[in-house]
């Protein structure tokens, strides 16, 4: 077991453990904070896998933006800060069975399929220079399409969350400021 494998195993244990805590904790805010731990450990795993640029994008967008957005969502839906008993629905045992079956099938298939393969790790393979060249030479059309998609989703989110635009009759009610 090489040093890279040891480091990646530790980071993977942290990521999976925090991920399991996200889906089992009884406090909503703690779920979002465990999500930060899980994403951070995954970013470390990307660094070990020499995907530096993806790691920093992960830190910036997931930890910096998406978790903050989720925390805003938790606050705006007036979620309880402390423990809440009814976060799990009634079918959690069925969900546990499905998740265990998924894990068993995926781990078995992956270990049987790729258990003896080794991958070469060369430093600099995923640097900003390499990925920038890839994005702006080969993948420039999907990149531009994606920017249009991001703009469309932004406009959609604004339209959904504003309460003063829409059908005529909905504008007469009391306006709420929680969007």
């Amino acid at each position: 077991m090489s040093g890279q494998e040891i480091v990646f195993t530790l980071l993977g244990v942290v990521a999976v453990g925090a991920g399991i805590l996200v889906v089992t904790t009884r406090r909503l805010v703690h779920a979002a904070l465990w999500l930060v731990v899980s994403f951070g450990a995954l970013a470390g795993g990307y660094l070990v896998l020499t995907a530096e640029f993806v790691a920093w994008v992960q830190v910036l967008i997931y930890v910096g933006a998406i978790v903050v957005l989720l925390l805003f969502g938790i606050m705006l839906t007036r979620a309880p800060i402390g423990e809440s008993a009814d976060l799990d629905s009634g079918n959690r045992w069925a969900a546990l069975a499905v998740a265990a079956a998924t894990a068993a099938v995926l781990v078995t298939v992956l270990v049987m399929g790729f258990g003896d393969r080794r991958m070469p790790l060369h430093a600099g393979g995923g640097s900003a220079r390499e990925l920038g060249a890839g994005v702006f030479r080969t993948w420039v059309l999907p990149f531009e399409v994606l920017s249009v998609l991001l703009l469309a989703s932004l406009v959609g989110a604004i339209v959904l969350s504003r309460s003063d635009i829409g059908p005529r009759d909905s504008g007469t009610g009391p306006r709420k400021e929680d969007g």
Partner: peptide
């Protein structure tokens, strides 16, 4: 690095 480590982590996540 063995390919099994990241794929197993991804499967569990």
């Amino acid at each position: 690095m063995h390919l099994a480590y990241p794929t197993v982590v991804a499967a569990l996540l």
